[in-house]
Structures are given as C-alpha cells and as structure tokens.
Design a protein around this nucleic acid. Structure first.
Lengths: 339, 339
DNA sequence: CTGAAAGCGCTTACAG
DNA sequence: CTGAAAGCGCTTACAG
C-alpha cells in the first residue's frame, strides 16, 4: 500500500461547531442540538444557531461526527469493473437508494482480481463503512463483521441475483420454437455462481428437450467474459464439421463477439446462425439484426440489493436473507430468427 | 436532507490502536509510530507491534486518522450520470490514478440537475474530501476552497476536455471528402462548453468550406443528449423539403438515435444519409453499418484530470491550470460512406 | 432548556 | 528510542 507523499495543508480552514456556537452565543452542546433540531432546544435559540451556521457557511464535519457516533453513514460497494455497463448501472441504482437513506457510497473496482477484492475490503473496513454491497470476483474471504449483501454472484448461497437457470431455459426453448436443434453455448468459465448457473441452466434446458449437444458445442471463454473470447469461441464452433445453427451466449459482451465472428466468417445472423443472449446489450435494438435477449435488470438488481442492505442496517437482521432471485423476461427481436 | 432513522450499533467492535499497544506492551504513541514504520522506533519494537496488529486483525480507523491529520485521503468525483458509459469509464480511469496515489474516491451522480450537483458538492465538503474532480452539469456555484479539476465541461475556462472544435472539423471535412454537401447537425442545447463548442465547431467548419447550411439543418435535442432526441431531430430533418444527405451528431447517443430514425424511415446509411459521430459508441464497430466517429478517450480524460489533481494535491498549485485539451482522432468505418 | 465534561481513535509536538 | 498529554470536531450522558 503506497501512502501519499507529503501533503500540503488544506487551503481553507473549515468553520467548526465552536465557531457557530460563539457566533450564536451558545455552547457547542447547544449548537449541536440546535443544528440537529433537537426538541430540547428553545425555538428562538434553534433559529439563532441555524442563522449563524448559514452565515458562516458551516458544513458539519462528518468525519468527526462519524468517529463520535461510531457510524460512518458510508456504504462500500465492490464491483469487478465499473467500466462495464452492467455494473455501472447496478451501482447507480444502488446509490440512488442509499443516498435517499442518507448514506454515501464508496465504490471500489477490483478488475476481477481476487487480491484486489480483498484489498478493497480492507480499505472499506478502514473507512468504517456501515455495510457493503459486493459483486464478488472470488476474493471475498474474510467476513467483515458488518452487514454484507452480495449481488450478481451469490456467496455461500446468499445474495441477490437473476434467475440464471430459468433465463437459460427461456433462451433455449425459444430457439427450439424456431426449429433450431444444433444449439451451442458460448459462455465463461464456471467459476462463480453466474457462470456456473448459466452453464448448468443451458445443460438442463437442452436435456429437458432431449437435444443432443456434443461436448464441443460448449465453449467457455475467458474469465472477463470478453467479446474477444466470445469471438474466439464462435470461430471454433463455426470451424466444426457439423457447426451449430444457433448460439446461446451467456452475456451481451459474448454475444457481440459472436456476432462479429459470424459476420467476419461471411455468414448471416440469423439465417445461417441464430443468436440469443443472456444479457441485453445496451444498444441491442440498434444492432443488425436487433438482438433477442433477456431484459436488462441492472438497475433493479442494484436497487433491490441496496434496499435489502438498508433494511438490515436500520432494523437489524431479522432472520437470514439467503437467496433472492430476480425474474427474467425474454425480449424477442430478430437475431433469433423472428420477424 | 433526510437523515437515516435510528441505527443499530455496529455488530463488531473494531480493534483500536490501544488494543494493539497493550498486546505489544508499548504505549499507543509507540504503536502508532511503529505501524507507520517511523525510523524513530527500534526494529524489535516495530516488529512486535506489527505482529500484534496482525494477530488482532487490526485495521486503523481512517476516520480518526483523518480527523487528526486534517486530511481525509478522499477525493470527490462528480458526474452527471454514472450509467452513461462515457462517465463510468472516465471515473474508472480517474479512480485508478487516485488509488495508486493512496486516495479513495467518493462518487456522486447529479442526474444532470444543477440542484443535485450543488447538494453533491456540500456532501463532499462535509466529508472533507481533499480535492474534487467535476464534470459539471451547471450547478457548480460555490468555490469550495479545495483543489478542483473540471473535466468534460470547462468552467471559467479551466479544466480538461477534448478538442471539440477540431473534432467537429474532422467530421465535417471527412463528409466533404465523400462529396456530401447537404450536411446537418444533430446536437444538444449549447448550455455547457461541450455543447457550445461542438455547435460552434460545426459552424466554423462548414463556414470554412463555404457550405450553405440552412438554419433548419441545425437541430438541437434535449439536455441529456438522449437517443430519443437524436431520433426526433433526425425525423425533423428527413421531413424537410430538401433533406440533408449527411448528419454530424454531437454524441454517440444522438448518433444511435439518428441511425434508428433513418432506418425506421426506410432509408439506408450511408447510401441515403451518411452519419458521423463525435463520440464513438461502445460497440461502434458492431453497428450496421459500423460507425465512423472520433476515438473514445474517456479513460485518458479521467486519468489526465486525476493526475492533474493529484499533482496539485501533492506539490501545491504551481501556477494556474486553465485549460487542457485532449487531441481528437477520427476512426473511419462505414457509416460515412467509406469502404 | 442549557452548559461543562468526557470520549470516539488516532497523531504528534514535547519531554525525557 | 519511548511515553504522557493534548487535540482534531463532533455528540451525549450528566448535572443543573
């Protein structure tokens, strides 16, 4: 951990409660109560203090308040990559809820490295966050002793996530309605619950329909679910002797990579190969062809997880919150062969 | 400002420096010095203290440290909308730099509402951030008395932004190379520098080329630069008696809206109407046709702005930093008529 | 209704 | 090299 070099003193000295108190001619105790609108202080006093505070441009020091009250009003949010739309919008949804509850948010990126995730955890603990929202990349080792809500990936069966298996079934079943039976899977390594459950969901769905899916029809890309790995997987599939006529991709990024690979191979979507995607790309309806995918629910995911944490924070844990599933919904566009 | 309701005490009591000190059988003063690896403490003592800290799982309380040192090691970052890829990735670039410098980041969304921006400013001040990075939406009123670096939009001629006028010239000139002369502008209201400079850049570029651009060829959408407003503007342009044969859009979102409107009107890009975009959509090369646009530089923008702030923080302001421009570069794909 | 006092958990002159 | 003391800016029993 590098420490910042020698720092200069702050340019301005902030006004303190004592400043306000003397300006209003009361004790700091009274000033404090007045500013928090305690019923203990006389109306006239209350007003005088507020006026003084406004006049001085007083902004209470949250650090001091937090130290004293042992509650930082800070929530830590840990995500793999804020540059990924899914996480950015989840965070935003969560943040809206937290701010409405009077909490501020400290966001940490882990770049999907478990070591950085562990470091992020310690940093947040050092800031004495009141709780955490975590989309883990696998580095979440120590139970921090404060409320934690996982989202996107479950940990020890707890957290908020989408119904991955049901989603996969929707996608597979829809392709079957189009009569496609050579269906391949373009996914990611089954390291965390989203990867595991989507792969598992695919397998369950095809088995239920008595589809014969050869082993080489299941292609797993890299751990960051990159478009490039989706393209590579697709290239491998197209090179097969009996290439698939439809792809189910485990994410929007993989779908975009797959689409690009198909186009570069001189083939057409959906005529030659149909594609359906688990996540809806942000511009899914502007792609050519528009992508059939499960509806996005990042915002809801973030909001739901945040509400859950907020609830725990304010009324205490009322029983375990093991597992919450957000329903999935299919958006039918053109890449599947419809329209 | 709502205050959170009654909160429960933290589940665990964190270990304190005093805990570590007694475990290592030294005074808190010595423990503090030992943990910060002060040369003042004997090696044996230093090690004993570190061992005790590790054994106890001690994590120093940054709140207390900040209060004492009057430096929070916190940076406030204010953006219009974290859900917009441009801002999400700018923030990420900035955050990387800050964390490397030992700072943590408090991100605030303003939803492009000046009032929320002002509120965000106060919140950050209350947290005693050491500095701020601000992509303003127009609500930045009070000079906070700490170092502030603006990005994306300049304020009072200061900040880090792309070379908007030069970018517009690149786009217009490229369309002219294709022989298109009925060029229209799909933009946003000129409220902040990016909107102002892009519109101005467009006007300068067409004037320089002696193009005749009727007033109705300049269409300004809503303040959030939404795809919908881009689509509306495009619809209006296509309905003209002499519709344009090429569009310059002031952002990727506007470009996507424009593309959709053209497609819905039953026309083709670029055959009927060419499009070039100021920002490169994240999946610009996967669109149909792939979009010709200025290269994205969010990451660089964030990193550059962060470095600038860090520099000011660590070595003090060495002269004013009025205006920094990031160069623009055209990525030629197909929507312009190339290929 | 108001104030003096203690204390949250650190850091850092000051004294030895 | 080490420790006792003061203090960062608040809040909150406690006493009046």
């Amino acid at each position: 951990m590098s420490r910042p070099a020698q720092r200069r003193a702050a340019a301005v000295r902030h006004r303190t409660l004592t400043d306000v108190a003397s300006a209003a001619d009361v004790s700091p105790s009274t000033a404090s109560r007045a500013l928090r609108d305690s019923p203990l202080v006389r109306e006239a006093t209350r007003r005088r203090v507020h006026a003084a505070a406004r006049r001085l441009g007083y902004e209470p020091n949250r650090l001091a308040r937090s130290l004293r009250t042992r509650s930082s009003s800070l929530i830590g949010v840990v995500v793999p990559d804020l540059g990924v739309g899914f996480y950015a919008r989840s965070v935003k949804g969560a943040q809206d809820i937290f701010e409405r509850g009077g909490y501020q948010v400290l966001v940490m990126n882990t770049e999907r490295e478990p070591a950085r995730e562990a470091a992020a955890l310690r940093t947040l603990l050092a800031h004495r966050v009141d709780g955490m929202l975590v989309a883990t990349s696998g580095g979440f080792i120590t139970p921090p002793g404060i409320p934690v809500v996982f989202f996107d990936n479950l940990v020890d069966g707890a957290g908020v996530a989408r119904a991955n298996r049901e989603g996969m079934a929707l996608l597979v079943d829809h392709l079957l309605e189009h009569g496609r039976r050579r269906i391949a899977y373009v996914g990611a390594p089954p390291l965390l619950t989203s990867g595991i459950e989507r792969l598992d969901g695919f397998r369950l769905a095809v088995a239920r329909q008595d589809l014969d899916v050869p082993a080489e029809y299941v292609q797993l890309g890299d751990e960051v679910w990159s478009p490039e790995s989706g393209a590579d997987a697709t290239r491998a599939l197209l090179a097969l002797e009996a290439p698939p006529t439809a792809l189910v991709t485990a994410s929007d990024t993989l779908a975009l990579g797959a689409m690009k690979a198909i186009r570069l191979a001189g083939m057409r979507v959906p005529e030659d190969v149909a594609i359906v995607s688990f996540d809806d790309p942000f511009f899914g309806d502007l792609l050519d062809p528009p992508m059939t995918a499960l509806a996005r629910a990042e915002r809801e995911l973030g909001e739901f997880a945040a509400s859950l944490l907020l609830h725990t924070l304010e009324s205490g844990p009322d029983g375990p919150v093991p597992e919450v599933r957000l329903p999935v919904r299919l958006i039918v566009r053109r890449s599947c062969g419809c329209g």
